[in-house]
Design a protein around this nucleic acid. Structure first.
Lengths: 249, 249
DNA sequence: ACCGAACCGTACCGTACGGTACGCATCTTG
DNA sequence: CAAGATGCGTACCGTACGGTACGGTTCGGT
């Protein structure tokens, strides 16, 4: 575990990595991306980074500390993509959402992200889930906060409406990513192509607007004969719950 | 669990595991669920199942073969959840979709499923991804085929409409699962009880119908950029979201 | 009764990893 | 320049794992 020089001097208590440490962690990241968990041994890191194992243990204390440092290092690298100017038109808002969706897909499908998620997931069995919590906080929740601000701006402008922002974001996330992330984590290589990502980003944002878009403002160019009649009757009552669940496990 | 299935006597062409082998694999599964990848060593399996390491190697040839056998065994256990009677009313169709969503959430959040996915993901780094492919084929794609049939039946009945069935299913999957699966894989323990799964199932199916539901008018051309923006207006599902129970925490 | 196959328990081997210790070169600091 | 700190390279240790071998036991076939 790395230690700050003084525990109050900098609010950024993390990512206080020496350039040399950064270089070592970069090499470790390369090993991890290439060979996965098994390839990330102290001896290999030391040889790849031309440093000593003793130095590694002095810096990071433990192998878990080393892994955590790798994750923290990578997380600190992609800090704060852009605050993004507040959108004044719905067009700009949609464009920002599409851009967010595309960024999300690109990041999630990146080699480094996949390797780190695989590492954390593989290590997360049991109950500690230390690395998993780290990845979740630094990666997922960070991007969630960013998107949450974007959604809130759109809602205050009246472009969309929702009752629960977190739920709205989860819906947006599901529309964008679907099962792609798990597929990629499992090693599937579905039709790689950047164009597919932009198409998927647009489609998911359109669907999100169809669900959460505010009324009166057509989110998309009005194509004729797209009008659905009232679907409100579908969800009038569903109270009568027929229990038809087959428990199997 | 399944029977002896001598080769040729039954149509069970795959996963022909002896009962004894099944018991051993069951013990291995327990070890995997409890302790993860690290706990699944040949010595531990042998001791837990009261068998010999040599027998393990004779049966499964290799450690990878053993892991693959564990996955195949579990996959064969949850075979054919239900043929599913064809729905004749939209009510029944929606109910079947909700049931599917609930089952999907329950399965994905189960300990065994999480352990197997973690195992395959942790092993999937690199390029082979043998276990990942196995999990994908036996788990994900199997459930996809089942849901695909369901969607197709609903489309032929005119309850929903889509151009690409696979795309429609992916949307449904994303609406149901969102990022829950990856969160669980990373060790996050979302504070939702089983009842929330039914709520989530209903909500996601409602959203799916809002996107793909057939409403008696002209069918959607491209299924994208044609969202029923006006429906978001007169829907009353925002009120539905208010639960009777106060939320903990 | 005999035999061979399957199998259990244990011991064994080679390897690889986490972690530590030592020697030496380099750099900082007074 | 002296002294200390930092870090590299290598060797080393204990452990644990994958995989193999061997003796002893059970059980079905003939």
């Amino acid at each position: 575990m790395q230690y700050t020089a003084q525990p109050g001097t900098d609010r950024e208590d993390d990512a206080a990595f020496t350039p040399r440490q950064g270089a070592v962690l970069e090499k470790a990241l390369g090993l991890l991306v290439e060979g996965g968990d098994r390839a990330l041994t102290t001896a290999r890191i030391a040889r790849a980074a031309s440093c000593s194992k003793e130095t590694l243990y002095k810096w990071f204390g433990d192998r878990d500390g080393l892994l955590a440092a790798v994750i923290a290092y990578q997380a600190g690298k992609v800090r704060a993509p852009a605050p993004g100017e507040v959108p004044d038109t719905i067009k700009a808002f949609q464009s920002q959402l599409v851009s967010f969706a595309h960024d999300l897909l690109s990041v999630l499908s990146g080699d480094v992200s996949l390797a780190l998620n695989r590492l954390a997931i593989g290590q997360a069995s049991g109950e500690d889930a230390k690395l998993g919590r780290l990845v979740l906080d630094r990666g997922r929740n960070a991007i969630g906060r960013r998107a949450g601000q974007l959604l809130e701006a759109g809602r205050q402008r009246g472009f969309i409406q929702y009752a629960d922002r977190d739920e709205a974001f989860r819906t947006l996330y599901g529309l964008i990513v679907s099962d792609l992330h798990v597929r990629l984590l499992l090693g599937d290589r579905p039709n790689r192509g950047k164009d597919d990502y932009t198409a998927q980003a647009r489609k998911s944002v359109d669907q999100f607007f169809a669900l959460y878009g505010a009324v009166g403002r057509a989110p998309v160019k009005n194509s004729t004969a797209c009008g659905p009649a009232t679907t409100a009757k579908n969800r009038s009552d569903r109270r009568q719950k027929g229990k038809r669940h087959k428990e199997r496990q």
